[in-house]
Design a protein around this nucleic acid. Structure first.
Length: 380
DNA sequence: ACACATGATTGGTA
DNA sequence: TACCAATCATGTGT
């Protein structure tokens, strides 16, 4: 091949390189060049533009350009050689799948299904009509995460586009000074995309973490303990105080109470378990409450009875038509020994009841003053 | 901040 | 398996 035309006589020094070296040892001019380059930093933009223009107009520019082209031609192969083939990123795929499963990747939908359905099935207790507040809370938070995710993603994509355009323009401009092949631009663009996709992966990762945290919080019922609604407490208390002689609702009654109070059957069971224990331990504290409910039921026509027509208060003469606090006290004393009705399916409790009954607490001025049979509840 | 109230959990029992 | 008893963890009122 023919070499580019070489200059017959030394070309006038380039403006930027005109300054004499301040004193470094003679030899290769690398140190000098370096200093010149460093000096460019101090130059103003106009100055730099002017120099650029001067370079562009330099008469030797075509010659130098062709030399660079030749060099580039020779090194081109090696550049192609290091062009790595990016394997499909397994982690990215995992994150994508997860975000899709959690409904974050999908655009917001106004219907049911997706994450909402998943949340419903994951509800503690599996009751469909309870925890609706929690559901909406969960949905709202998930939606928030989704919004943030999409807006951030959009920002990254926009930044990526802008940066790619910028770099492409820069390379195009540089192509006036040095040979820049389309392949090189393409490679640079793919490098930029690679960098931005790494950032996107971080975003996806943190989004996944946020969703996981949200889910675990939502599913952890203990952390999210909420006091029952007034209605639920009323329903439960009405049943409890109207069945003081046998405060052991059947499965059917529990289901009814659960439906009425908007809670789960297991919550009803928990509530009755806690109530029996706490009532027994400190009846004095519940006297007022008992009076309120018994009076209320006597006056109001036993609201709970209407909903629990077949409550298994067998062994007793049915619901307690208590009409006064005095009657209530009698009932409290009945429960003091906690002997569930024989047919109430609480034979074990009955046995235990007899144990407790060995020292029946007397419901008087000092209702809990019986350390022999009533241990103190540390939390109460 | 504190004490108390209360729903949930756990381990044991019959 | 239902229940008791103790305990935990959170909510609530002061």
């Amino acid at each position: 091949m023919d070499s580019p035309p070489r200059p017959q006589r030394p070309a006038p020094p380039l403006p930027a390189l005109r300054r004499p070296p301040p004193g470094p040892p003679p030899g290769p001019d690398t140190g000098e060049v370096l200093q010149q380059i460093m000096a460019i930093t101090d130059q103003s933009l106009e100055e730099a533009q002017a120099r650029k223009h001067a370079l562009n107009c330099h008469r030797m520019k075509p010659a130098l350009f062709s030399v660079l082209c030749e060099i580039k031609e020779k090194t081109g192969l090696s550049i192609h050689g290091i062009q790595e083939e990016c394997p499909p990123n397994a982690q990215l795929m995992r994150l994508d799948n997860m975000l899709l499963a959690e409904g974050v990747s999908r655009p917001e939908r106004r219907g049911r299904g997706g994450p909402v359905a998943a949340a419903n099935t994951a509800t503690p207790g599996g009751c469909s009509n309870d925890n609706s507040l929690e559901h909406s809370d969960y949905r709202a938070k998930l939606s928030q995460i989704r919004q943030i995710y999409h807006s951030e993603l959009e920002k990254y994509e926009q930044a990526c586009r802008e940066f790619t355009t910028h770099v492409t323009n820069l390379l195009r401009e540089q192509s006036r000074m040095r040979p820049v092949s389309p392949k090189e631009i393409e490679r640079m663009v793919s490098v930029i995309h690679g960098k931005f996709s790494a950032i996107q992966m971080q975003l996806k990762q943190s989004t996944c973490e946020a969703v996981m945290t949200l889910r675990s919080r939502f599913l952890d019922a203990r952390r999210k303990r909420r006091n029952f609604s007034k209605r639920a407490t009323e329903v439960l208390n009405e049943y409890f105080y109207s069945h003081l002689n046998n405060p052991y609702p059947s499965e059917e009654a529990k289901e009814r109470l659960a439906r009425k109070g908007g809670i789960t059957v297991s919550q009803v069971s928990n509530w009755f378990g806690n109530k029996r224990i706490r009532y027994k331990k400190n009846m004095g504290k519940f006297q007022e409450e008992a009076t309120i409910y018994t009076t209320k039921m006597a006056v109001g026509g036993l609201g709970s009875q209407a909903s629990c027509p077949s409550t298994p208060s067998s062994g007793s003469s049915g619901p307690f038509p208590l009409t006064s606090a005095g009657d209530a006290l009698v009932t409290l004393q009945t429960l003091a020994s906690l002997r569930p009705a024989p047919a109430g399916g609480s034979l074990r409790s009955q046995a235990r009841g007899s144990r407790l009954g060995a020292a029946p607490p007397v419901l008087t001025a000092s209702p809990s003053g019986d350390p022999g049979s009533i241990s103190s509840d540390a939390s109460n």
